[in-house]
Amino acid sequence: MSHSKIAIRVDDLTVAYSYKPVLWDIDLEVPEGVLMAIVGPNGAGKSTLIKSILGIIDPIAGSVSIYGKPYDKQRKLVAYVPQKGSVDWDFPTTALDVVTMGTYGKLGWIKRPGGKEKRAALEALEKVGMLPFKGRQISQLSGGQQQRVFLARALVQDAAIYFMDEPFQGVDATTEIAIINILKELRKAGKTVVVVHHDLQTVPEYFDWVTFLNVKKIATGPVKDIFNDDNLTKTYGINYKVAVNQ
């Protein structure tokens, strides 16, 4: 595998909410075009890491660059799928409306979404198989459907790098397959995808790149080289055995 460009670069990133650091001195380079899982136990700082990269959380120290420039200047290259539980799904709006929100960043202040934006949103809904539900009030969607709406909202941003916070959490097998197919399509199109992931069993099958995280960065690299019992044990603190047969 030859990865020429570095899509995401994190230097000396440290984050703390109170005295105890949540992330400690993280250095990370993510090459362009990989499908990367961030794995680690609860409280390892996985979500915090992507939130810090995205500027949602202010780090105590460290810096982040996207294709060599500060994140502020590269926002339009980045799309984000937050955890499904982070919003109120009883909000009075429809699936199409939520997906259209993905176009707001490129529109900028005050300008309203028009026909072009609506078409892009419909296209994204179709990609995730949610077109028949476009007019549905979002509380009347199942958990898996809500997750797909969130994914469509990120797709509509038409970014180079996608950050996803546990997109597989609480979704059924059909949705999981639909999501992973889209992720693989994104990779085929040369996009970089970073996913906070919980299910260790599926890492070798779904991803080609992995970062082990537990407050500190334990390891990062190609799945086939570093996804082994040694790193899992270091990350999870118990003697971990996973069948890695790839």
Partner: peptide, 21 residues
């Protein structure tokens, strides 16, 4: 004037921030 900005902030503040607002 700020209808779109108000709406998205009400629904998902963190996401709004990542869009550059």
């Amino acid at each position: 004037l700020f209808w779109k900005e108000f709406k998205i902030l009400l629904f998902d503040a963190d996401y709004t921030k990542t869009l550059g607002f």
